[in-house]
């Protein structure tokens, strides 16, 4: 396993993070180091071991399927970088 330019570009695109050329070069080295280091897990025998997603083992409770509205729109929009007439504003997506 080895991370090259194209992998870093692909992953950065998946993560929606713009990186410049300098960052790209650094990330190639760092990701290779880190992934090389975590690779030692391959030596651990995990045959017939169940994956553990959470340590929480209490049964989760269902709640009533009921819509609740605790906040008003203005409170929510106050934190948005740009809003208009009660909506979030984004760049044009449909021509």
């Amino acid at each position: 396993m080895s991370i090259d330019n194209s992998t870093v570009k692909k992953v950065a695109n998946l993560a929606r993070i713009e990186i410049n050329e300098e960052e790209e070069t650094t990330l190639i080295t760092e990701l290779n180091n880190i992934l090389g280091w975590v690779d030692e897990l391959k030596q651990v025998n995990t045959d017939s071991v169940e994956p553990m997603l959470s340590v929480f083992n209490e049964s989760m409770q269902m709640r009533e399927d009921k819509a609740e509205s605790n906040f008003d729109n203005n409170q929510i929009l106050d934190n948005s970088p740009e809003s208009n007439s009660g909506f979030f504003v984004v760049p044009r997506v449909v021509e």
Binding site: V11, I17, E23, L41, T46, V49, E50
Partner: peptide, 28 residues
């Protein structure tokens, strides 16, 4: 950014089983 890159990589198609699923088993 570094950690988001690692996280995205280990969850991406083709690497999920080798990294993420493996880690969940070792966690057990």
């Amino acid at each position: 950014k570094r950690r988001l890159m690692i996280g995205t990589y280990v969850l991406s198609a083709g690497y999920y089983d080798a990294y993420y699923l493996k880690a969940l088993k070792v966690r057990k």
